[in-house]
């Protein structure tokens, strides 16, 4: 944490979904997608959020973007609690928080040209007046992400997957946001193309003080991109801290399991007894959500949910009664 100025503070966010089509009288449990998540993003920093499907990372992204506002909790961006904003005020603040989506094809309007797509945020926020000015800024944005300004005239389906994602990044960056939320930005791309996009993102961050929230299921990608790693499980943060600490010396057994399972993580692969599937946090009762899969669980774990707490001076926080010491 080189810079201490805070850009985003997520405070104790909860988000519950009612199961679709629940009937009165049916005992359909509410899905607690995110349960009391807090995190801080500093200027120029990338916070990587990693976890398996159903862990709540995408719900958290939607909450930060205020696309699916949280039920309770605060999302403080640059001193303003966005959960209190409505209408125009919320739209204005969106200029400073942009987003890059997973599938660059479905996230771009296929009936608009790349130029119209990238120009849209400029129009929406009145940041450039007139066709000429917009065209010039779109051209700059395209070159910035390694596309040709002439690509502005093309349609999304005429671009390759990698080019489309570059266009998606250009759309996010054209309004010069302070924070960009990247929701699995490379998981729809081939390995060789993924590397190009990750490098581009690293370069774009190096030249500015922009902050990223980088969401991925892939530990290797997060390891390459993030300053801070946040590991989520069943709607909660189980471990967070400097990426080198979390991935080299995991304190939480779940982080350990994830690393074991990741091919090419330099560990000999083994399917542990702890492996198994994340049940969307349906009913974990009062105990630790990981208890059923945990290789080191003890009686306490089934009864008391561990709090996220600092265990040493490295800045790592872990939600486990029996964290491994570093």
């Amino acid at each position: 944490m080189t810079n201490t100025s805070t850009v985003l503070e997520v405070k104790d966010v909860h988000k519950t979904y009612k199961p679709a089509g629940s009937v009165v009288g049916a005992k359909a449990a509410h899905v607690r997608a995110v349960q009391g998540v807090s995190l801080t993003v500093h200027r120029g920093q990338t916070v990587g959020i990693v976890g398996e499907s159903g862990c709540g990372k995408s719900t958290l992204a939607n909450a930060i973007l205020m696309l699916e506002p949280p039920d309770t909790g605060e999302i403080v961006f640059d001193g303003t609690d966005m959960t209190r904003l409505r209408g125009g005020a919320l739209r204005r603040i969106r200029r400073r928080i942009q987003c890059v989506f997973q599938d660059p094809y479905t996230a771009l309007n296929a009936r608009m040209t790349i130029g119209q797509i990238i120009g849209e945020p400029l129009r929406v926020h009145g940041l450039a007046k007139g066709r000429r000015a917009i065209k010039a800024q779109v051209g700059t944005a395209l070159s910035h992400v390694g596309l040709n300004p002439r690509d502005a005239r093309r349609y999304p389906h005429e671009l390759s997957g990698g080019q489309r994602q570059r266009a998606g990044i250009a759309r996010a960056l054209v309004v010069d946001p302070q924070l960009v939320v990247l929701d699995e930005p490379t998981s729809a791309l081939d390995v060789s193309v993924q590397a190009q996009i990750l490098n581009l993102l690293l370069d774009l961050q190096a030249e500015s003080e922009r902050s990223f929230v980088f969401i991925s299921h892939d530990l290797a990608v997060v390891s390459q991109m993030a300053h801070v790693a946040v590991v989520m499980y069943a709607g909660r943060i189980v471990e967070s801290g400097p990426v080198e600490e979390v991935f080299s010396r995991p304190r939480h057994p779940y982080t350990d399991v994830l690393l074991d399972a990741t091919p090419g993580a330099g560990r000999s692969p083994r399917a542990t007894a702890a492996a198994g599937e994340t049940r969307a946090a349906l009913d974990v009762g009062q105990g630790c959500p990981f208890v059923a899969r945990c290789p080191i669980a003890q009686d306490t774990c089934a009864q008391v949910a561990p709090e996220l707490r600092s265990v040493d001076a490295t800045g790592v926080e872990v939600a486990c009664h029996f964290p491994r010491s570093a």
Binding site: R94, F101, D103, T106, A107, N109, P121, G168
Partner: peptide
Amino acid sequence: QRPMVRAARAIGARPSRVLLRH
């Protein structure tokens, strides 16, 4: 439900624009 529409909202487009344009 399409990501495209989420994207338009995330940009900060007004609901009317999202509806008519996207």
